[in-house]
Design a protein around this nucleic acid. Sequence first.
DNA 1: GGTAAGAAGTTGTATTGACAACTACTGGGT
DNA 2: ACCCAGTAGTTGTCAATACAACTTCTTACC
Lengths: 166, 166
Amino acid sequence: MSYQVPRMNELESRAWLSLVWTAELLPAALDAQLQAESGMTHFEFIVLSTLRQADDGALQTKDLAAAVNSTMPRLSRVVGKLATRGLVERIGGQDDARVINVHLTGAGRRALVRAVPGHIALVKRLVIDRLDAQQLEVLAGALEPLVGRLDPHNRVGFAAVQHMAE
Amino acid sequence: MSYQVPRMNELESRAWLSLVWTAELLPAALDAQLQAESGMTHFEFIVLSTLRQADDGALQTKDLAAAVNSTMPRLSRVVGKLATRGLVERIGGQDDARVINVHLTGAGRRALVRAVPGHIALVKRLVIDRLDAQQLEVLAGALEPLVGRLDPHNRVGFAAVQHMAE
DNA sequence: GGTAAGAAGTTGTATTGACAACTACTGGGT
DNA sequence: ACCCAGTAGTTGTCAATACAACTTCTTACC
């Protein structure tokens, strides 16, 4: 008499569990490596990377927030801290006085450039070098649509780590 | 004259980016669904699920912490809150007075049972039903070793969601 | 059997992030 | 010209979690 509850078979459970635990454990590993070797969080790394890829090394706060999937308050505080460290600079917009453009400074660019090799090394050691081309293909093909579904506004900045590619 | 920096090709970048953004976005989606429909966080859900699967619905705090990948302080506070809500009960160990055994109560079991269908529905809608058997196979095969590498103590409780399976 | 090293669990303190409230500014409608 | 609805960004407040310090208890060793 019990009504039917949706279930998952064993393969589905394995895939789901591995994904959930990856999502739980991966951020801490990225933060730990970047913090230890470069004194920045993974989120700060993404912010700097995103700026570096922008046309003139600068983005409006709102657009930067969208690109790094951040709320405005969070980004405001992180940018404030990056600014006191001299890694970014906040410059008010000319045409619209409400706007703040966040610029990557020379020091910020250098800090990022120093941080990248160690970070890529971790990523390769942890993930990339353990997978063959078919696995990489399936992983990207499976997760990219998922990200699209997860991102409420569908505009996560896939650009953030593009500079890692050749 | 510049020394070589490790790089990733485009396929590697795509796989990596989709994985990082999944890790960033997935936890919020799980919390939002469980909070809205069942009034609990995903972490609380995992704690209750883990207890439910334990032999007698109870685990020692330290073992529970290991199974759900939590620090002791974090778990102590979460269990405290679950106890005030009547979902678990803390019972001191008989042989060792330092030990606390965390027991799932009837109310806790009922709350979990009520929460499961909606959660599984989300998981299927978001991930499982979008992937075919080959993708599920590759996903699990790629991520399970990764979780092993990410878990410093190699004892993450893959049991936590097993009851979702038939 | 007394003591010291260490384990289990809780609590103090600081940081991070979310949501909401606020300030400052813009632009459309009249 | 003025008001008002809406946007950009910051700050207030609170919950969550990490690390460290603490309490209590156990066990190994002499």
